[in-house]
Structures are given as structure tokens and as C-alpha cells.
Nucleic acid binder design. Sequence first.
DNA 1: AATCGGTGTAGCGCGTGAGTTGCATAATCT
DNA 2: AGATTATGCAACTCACGCGCTACACCGATT
Lengths: 144, 144
Amino acid sequence: MQLTRYTDYALRVLVYLGSAESGTTASAAEIAKFYGISRHHLSKVVSMLSEQELVIAARGRGGGIRLSVDPKDLCIGDLIRQTENLSIVECFNAETNTCPIASDCTLENLLQDATKAFLAVLDKMTLADLLPASQALLQIRLAR
Amino acid sequence: MQLTRYTDYALRVLVYLGSAESGTTASAAEIAKFYGISRHHLSKVVSMLSEQELVIAARGRGGGIRLSVDPKDLCIGDLIRQTENLSIVECFNAETNTCPIASDCTLENLLQDATKAFLAVLDKMTLADLLPASQALLQIRLAR
DNA sequence: AATCGGTGTAGCGCGTGAGTTGCATAATCT
DNA sequence: AGATTATGCAACTCACGCGCTACACCGATT
């Protein structure tokens, strides 16, 4: 049971952007280099975040990416609801279900409750809470 | 974020076996037919459950599969810990990590806590709790 | 010993997630 | 207008999860 790599990178992009001074931009190439993946791949993630209006991406010289919301207003649970498919088994979705007992299944209810518990923990935090307290990220960024 | 199909089928096999009278066996072919997959594929799942000593599989005429534990002693949280890789992002595992800020990351801690909350809900239930209350499974089984 | 009814497992093919490549398009600076 | 610095995205490749086929092996019955 894993979060998709897209969700993982989405979180990383947001943490990276949130660690900067408010309003500053970073380029996709810079962030990609920091996390060791290609710019093109990271751009796909940025496009998704842009569609969800979590970041603003500006093309062209002097362009780049910045947060479009205040870190303290960005609920991590909401982000994950947007980026992840949370049907953790196929019977959560009537269209994909093949299980013959899905219509009366305690297991499905249990897994729904477990998923809710997972998200409830995430709902308590915002991006602001995730920004490095020890300035580790800033130190790493400044070292490059 | 999905449970693997193996975990899903493992749960289904256990629910199927648990719905029978105590101690009765079912064949892999029978269970596979019930869930609409090939016997060979279901056998891989059964082999995993057998290795984990949750079921006993007997070869040969009159063989088959039966639960090796009492449904009320089979904790769903423990099962999922055994069948799933719960490193929901790569940084949970130092060997696979590529994230440069993993050593000091609030996000990792948050996702660990969310995973624990997910499992805490599952830990409250046993296989006994999952067996169909309305006898839907038994009705379906008897109809075949 | 042969047959029947069972499980065990290696190897294979397909679909999809993940990451790359190449090029298009855009915006600012000179 | 051209150069530079930026994002956007289609098409591609690869790895792996998933499910299948084929055959091996097993144990009871005849």
C-alpha cells in the first residue's frame, strides 16, 4: 500500500516551495535537481498542482513556480484526497467491483473506516506544519 | 493508494473459509470460481497464507484448504502487516530513500502516524467480525 | 499401478505507473 | 528580431503487479 509517486512528489514540491520566503519562485529545473529527477517528470507533477490551483506556474524568463495558497491554509488531507485514488480495494467502486459479496460486506466498511482514520490524521495538519523546523531544507538549499 | 490484489484476495479467501462450518475445507478451485479468477492465481494467494500459517492446505484427493486459526483470534491489522508493504512512501525505508531531506522530515512522521491510525482501526477487528451477518455469503455458496 | 482430485510453482504476457526524450510554446531581456 | 530562460505536453521506454497457462508433484481411492 503506497502513495503514488505523483503524490509523493506533489508533497515534496509543496514543501520545497513552502520553505522559501513567501512569494518567491523556484524553477521546475531547480526543484527537480534538488530531488534528483528529470525536469520533465517534475513538470508533470507541477502541472497537476497547477490544475488544482495549489501553485502558480509562470513560463518564460523570470518565470517559475510558487505557492498560490498560504501554507497554513493548505490541508494535507485535502491534498491527498485530490491526488490519490482512495478506493483501496476494488469493491469501493461499483464500476470496478468483481467481488460477489460486495453488497453486504463488513470488510469493505472496515476498510472505509480505516481509510477515514488515515485521512483524519492528515486533516489535522497543514503545509505550514510540515515545513522543516530545523531549517534542514533551507540549509541544503543554501548549500547548493 | 491501494491494497495489493494479493491482500485483497487473502482477505477474501479467509472470509470464504471462515463462513464455512468450523474445520471444513474448500478447494482452491471452488474458491477461485466463487471469486471469478483462475485456480492457479488463487493458489499463489493460498500459498502465501499457508506460509503465514493462517491456513492449512492439504494436497491430494479429499484435500483442500481450511483455516488454521479461530476466526476470533485472527486480527485483521496483523494480517495486513504481514501481507502489505506499509512503507507508503519511499523515505520510510532507508534503503530505497532518495529524498534529500528524509533525515529530518515532519511529513514522514505525519504519514507514519496516519498509517498507524489506519492500522489501529484494523486492529480492533478480527476475522470473526467480518463474517457475513446476513448470511449473504452462505446463501451465495449454497446457491452454487 | 492407474486414476482422480487436489496443491505448488515456473514462466509468460499484458496493462499501467513511472520516468525519459524531444519538441512546442511562452515570456523577458538585449 | 533573436537569444535566453522558462513551462507544457505528446510519445516513448521500462519495470513491475497481476493474472494466466502448463506442467510438476502429491495423496486417496480403486
